[in-house]
Simulated assay, not measured.
Amino acid sequence: MEKKPVTRKNIAELCGVSISVVSRALNNSGYVEESKRRKIIETAEKLNYIPQPVAMSLQERRTKQLLYYCKDLSNEYYVDMYRGMCEAANKRGYLVTISGMMEFDRIKDTMVDGIIMPNEDLTSYYMKHGGKNYYLPVVSASYCNAVDIPKSVPLVEADMYQAMDFALSYLNSMGHKVIAYGFPYDRNNRNSRFLAWKNYIKEITGNTGWKKYLLAMNQNEMKDDPRILPFSEDLPEQSIHIEEDFFGKGKLAAQVFMERKLNATAIICFNDEFAIGMIKGFQEMGVNVPEQISVMGIDGTGTRKYLSPSLTTVNMFPKKQGRECANVLIDIIEKKNKRYIVHLKPKLQIGESVKNLHT
């Protein structure tokens, strides 16, 4: 017969004390009379007591580890967020582990004190598929997208709708009026960046004319390219762990733009990586950026400065978003003031990829 593991209850019964006294003695936390402490430790050693870290994590939140659940480590924005999380967590005595391949039903048994999700879509999927019943607290990065999350989750929000407004206003100030949008998803995706651009372009092109200026990378337009995935509101199981090829989609979008022979003088892209892909795509076709077409991104990741011409973008401060995610989660773990929404303001970051049409 398999021998049962020794528990703190067993030690408490042998030492004639409560389980809480045993816990304080073994964790070296709180007052325990010295004679009782020595007896408890000696008994634990004699019985070869091995603590169960998972149980300790769930009951006492003592692992000092956070889980960053990120399926897309090719996305520089999410990597910058991780750097920010590590900085904040380290200052408060925590570590941040990272995983995007772990099945959701295994998270409840993981030796962590809480979870950080990189976006609202993944948060919604996680909460609908068991997360709302787990003990571990969750904090999510947010981008002002309309997503149904079945349980209240604190959000650290980068206002992407405002970021698109900043980009459009800047391009207008540089003389650009007809502005296309490079989008890596299907037009049915309710992304806040897309909605802000759509509201703008419809005033110029009308209720249906705007569609030709939307460079959406979806299966309807790119049926034979394996990098193009269908959009699903339910985030199907098979797409959970697939990394996005924003750079490749950007290069494809540049080809689509030239094939349509659009009269737009500028293009705003979904993110910096998509924009960099577009610029590279244009350059390979002999199209000069910004002399022949201006390109903007939205993100503010460090990769933009290595591009020639340097990318004009709207900085969403991903490292700051990561720091705030970690701090909000640690505050919850340590039972400090709980913040449900933290707003981050974007800032225009001017490079060389936009032409001034007034000169």
Rank of each mutant, 00 (worst) to 15 (best):
M1T: 13
M1N: 12
K4H: 02
T7W: 06
I11D: 05
L14V: 13
S20I: 12
S20R: 08
S23G: 09
L26I: 03
N28R: 10
Y31T: 15
Y31R: 08
E33W: 04
S35I: 02
K39G: 00
I40H: 03
T43M: 13
E45T: 03
L47D: 00
N48Y: 10
Q52G: 11
A55I: 11
S57R: 02
R62G: 13
T63S: 14
T63R: 05
K64Q: 12
L66K: 04
Y69H: 12
K71I: 01
L73G: 02
Y78D: 09
M85P: 01
C86G: 09
C86Q: 15
A89L: 08
K91Q: 14
G93D: 08
G93S: 12
V96R: 02
I98F: 01
M101N: 13
M102W: 02
M102T: 12
K108V: 00
T110Y: 06
V112C: 07
D113I: 12
D113T: 12
S124L: 07
Y125E: 15
Y126K: 00
K132G: 02
Y135E: 14
V138Y: 01
V139H: 05
A141Y: 00
A146G: 02
P154G: 07
V156T: 08
A158D: 08
D159Y: 05
M160H: 06
M160V: 01
M160A: 00
Q162R: 14
A163Q: 00
M164Y: 03
F166C: 04
F166R: 02
S169E: 09
Y170K: 08
S173L: 13
K177V: 12
A180N: 11
Y181D: 05
P184N: 08
Y185H: 15
R187W: 03
N188A: 13
R190A: 13
S192H: 03
R193Y: 09
A196R: 01
N199G: 12
I201C: 06
K202L: 00
I204D: 09
T208V: 15
K211F: 14
K212D: 07
K212Y: 11
L214M: 09
M217C: 14
Q219A: 12
M222A: 15
K223N: 10
K223D: 04
D225L: 05
F231E: 01
D234L: 07
E237F: 11
Q238R: 15
E243Q: 14
E244Q: 03
F247S: 14
K251W: 01
Q255M: 05
V256R: 10
F257H: 13
E259D: 13
E259K: 06
K261M: 03
A264D: 12
T265P: 03
I267G: 04
C269I: 11
F274K: 06
F274R: 14
A275M: 04
M278L: 09
I279M: 15
M285Y: 12
V289L: 08
V289G: 10
S294G: 12
G297W: 05
I298C: 02
I298K: 00
I298N: 00
G302R: 10
T303G: 00
R304S: 11
K305W: 10
Y306E: 09
T312E: 07
M316A: 05
Q321I: 15
G322E: 02
G322R: 04
N327R: 04
V328G: 00
V328L: 06
L329C: 00
I333D: 03
E334A: 09
K336T: 01
N337I: 04
N337C: 01
R339V: 14
R339W: 03
K345Q: 15
Q349E: 11
E352W: 05
V354Q: 07
V354I: 09
K355A: 07
L357R: 01
H358Q: 08
